[in-house]
Amino acid sequence: SPVALPPFFMRGSIIQLADGELKRVEDLKTEDFIQSAEISSELKIDSSTVERIDSGQTPNAVVIQFSVGELKAQVCVEVLVEYPFFVFGQGWSSCCPDRTTQLFELSCAKLCVGDVCVSLTLRSLR
């Protein structure tokens, strides 16, 4: 694959929360992201709803259109099909959960239109 996979999605990766607590990536919960963002002076959690999922430029890529935050700003990102997003109340989800599990050993649900993902914005952005 020409695109390097982020190492931190590999099962067993150690993640440091904003309060210093260490957790494995597969053990993260929605509250961990919410509480970490509450502590952060710069970052704010937004709810980003999946509006559309289309094919990307290459066969293993998808373009995901999100509706971000209270303003419902439309943001598109192109990612590999195995790229996991964290869905509120559900956990890691990707467009191709089988491939995510195969590559990262990370259990994943299928990312669907309507899912609400954890995303970040800068607190100073308005």
Partner: peptide, 19 residues
């Protein structure tokens, strides 16, 4: 063992400024 910050796992989706 590498330790990664929590925010590296979350996409940064900045809405385009419209004002």
């Amino acid at each position: 063992v590498p330790v990664f910050p929590w925010h590296s796992l979350v996409p940064f989706l900045a809405p385009t400024q419209s004002d």
